[in-house]
Write a protein that binds this DNA or RNA. Structure first.
Lengths: 228, 228, 228, 228
DNA sequence: AATGAATGAGGATTCATTCAT
DNA sequence: TATGAATGAATCCTCATTCAT
């Protein structure tokens, strides 16, 4: 399920129709146009990178005039800055859903976080580009994304710490751990999930090795037995 | 010691002087000009980012005409692509030196790798920008940099593995571990080493936490004792 | 008393009310909207100049949609062209009132014309901008304004001439004199009446010097005594 | 003699030629290009007004690429702001020359100033547009022009005052007089010197009437005899 | 009559690269 | 080899005006 599918410009069905004559209120039409532009922008960034996501390409992709862009966004940069935080929230939601379905076990939860991330990345192929170019092209949006992810990850770790599962306790330490885990999922996805321009699932040993490392590094009473 | 200091455009001394009148052979003069341009480019990237490193700025910074740039480099992009690999090799050298001076102990060596990296970053402030913008602006150069670092790191890990110190053995597994370690040092430096536009040493608990995590996750017979 | 006060969009009282339910006839409502747009336009020109008086600003200022503008005016330019002549007529009325209150003396009347002009300018701050930008941005409106002022001034001069007060008699000559007087009041107001973006009264010596010049240049039997 | 004639892009003769092979040094060629752009800009302003003097028109008129414009001027506005002060200095020079040739008599000198101005205007047709649009489109350049003219006119008046010719003495008074005289020449030229888009000499009675007014208003011992 | 989303023709500016000198 | 003026394609953004609702 891609971003466009999750945020359909054309809603599946509008049950309550006040004016049968006029299906689309003006406001609704505006929403649709806005969504079309956003979708075209994401597409453009995915295909040509942030630098190649020109107003011309975005507007053409959305099927609107260049000027229309500025009805919905203050500037090209403003739109770009918005993309990553928007998707970042969806990523958070997805990971939360996956973690909720995982067995009640700290290690399973951590695996769920990693796998949820990789799943979402597969479903949202353009996120890949955003993650890798965002830092230089939308500094603020990237900062916000990192903040969102860090806050959430940190909460999760603090929860595990309170349950006594972790080898780390202080927030300062957990902060560092948080960086390590987020860094790892980014680097791992960067190197194992892109094949021929398409995002794929990494080979199974990748997440396994990651988990081995993390279980030994992060969790209590988990060491001793090295992986075979 | 910055890049410019390590690669002086004006060599300290030229001992063999064939023509007393003409100290610098034409070739040597060319080398100097080339180095001046490269140094100006690094400076420009550090100060204004890759996007802001225009030919105008680079040439002005090097004290040459715009056209002269093209005597030494095929294109702006070609120069940019070269920067990161060049520095990457130096980084490797620096880390190797630091590791050689470390105690003969796998954990001490890993700490040396992290601290060597952080040291080099402090000495080469413009590397920071390159690392964080390089992926989007000089894809190939960045790829080469990652390759250089990965190859070296992987060798080191394989060495430790052969000595029986690690919980991982297969190259495939070590590859993943390698990503985790490189990712961590990048993310950690990104978040703890930049204060007010200057690269600084991170607070001591940062590397300590990192080492705790890594010792538990990576090394054999090292677990059991969680940090206080 | 500003333009808006002189031309209230909401009339003080509508005595005859045919339909008690509907106070405002449709036509009346239209008039009000039109006046609101005109007032917003004047405000916009005053604050941002003719070039900055965009439809967006005008419509927003008037509290109507952009499209509504075109119900009342053929084009932005058409509105702009109308502004100066409209105000020009009011200026004429004001000066006439002031002159009527002046002593029955040609010199006093001329002083009244100048002072009436300056007074009106103070009360209509946006006129300042219109006068100084009008020539390039609303050529025709400016032409009409100049025509209105010239015709009136010329009539006044001809009246004085018929009474035998002037050193000039032919209409051709009076035409030239008329230019001189109108030019002077414009330049004098431009240079002495604007302080920190606000229109102020000029220092007293300014009108005095003007009158000295004009009395010597224009009026009969007035010379001889130079000012100290 | 137009601006272009006074400032020829191609100099009449370069006597000292260091390199016979290379007539035009690079610097000289630059000067020529700059002059071509400036001339094209003046032409464009004259023909289409400041608002119509687009980079496209200017560059095309000068026979250079759009980008070349920015080799010589920081911005379109910067060029525009420069035009009026440049020409204002030439106007001053012209008037000074004319005054120097006039009979040694304050009234003759004042007539020379007015006639010199009108002459220059005829020779520099585009000045007309600049004078009438400059205030709104190149505020700073216009301010500078007014300053230049005012300073010069004021000096002339102070000179006459010191010789005891004027009915005014204090600088404050002369300032006001100065505005009146400059205003008059502008208004008079605006209304009598433009016929079918061409600048022409005004009918003779115009300057005569002006002089009558000024002689009565400004000069001592000059009144008494009104013109018939 | 009112609305305001959509239009699209411009306009200023940037900058990597070329090439005659 | 060095120069730096010239190039011109490309880009973002503005805004008067239209028109379906």
């Amino acid at each position: 399920m891609s971003y466009a599918e999750r945020n359909p410009a054309t809603p599946p069905q509008s049950t309550a129709v006040p004016h049968p004559k006029r299906r689309l209120t003006r406001a609704r039409k505006g929403e649709i146009t806005r969504a079309k532009i956003m979708a075209a922008a994401i597409e453009a960034v995915g295909k040509h990178g942030f630098a190649g996501a020109t107003i011309a390409r975005i507007a053409d992709g959305a099927g609107v005039a260049h000027g229309t862009f500025y009805t919905y966004f203050d500037s090209r940069q403003a739109l770009l800055e918005q993309m990553l935080p928007d998707i970042s929230v969806e990523l958070l939601n997805h990971i939360r859903d996956v973690v909720l379905k995982a067995p009640d076990d700290p290690i399973a939860r951590e695996r769920a976080r990693m796998e949820g991330f990789l799943e979402f990345l597969r479903d949202t192929p353009h996120l890949f580009t955003m993650l890798h170019e965002g830092e230089s092209h939308t500094r603020e949006g990237f900062r916000r994304h990192v903040e969102l992810q860090t806050d959430s990850y940190l909460s999760a770790l603090q929860h595990e710490a309170r349950l006594g599962h972790l080898r780390f306790e202080s927030t300062n330490q957990l902060h560092v751990v948080c960086r390590i885990l987020m860094a790892s999922r980014d680097y791992i996805s960067a190197h194992y999930c892109m094949r021929d321009g398409k995002v794929v699932a990494p080979p199974p040993h990748v997440v396994d090795s990651y988990m081995t490392f993390v279980v030994g590094g992060l969790f209590k009473n988990a060491g001793g037995n090295p992986p075979e």
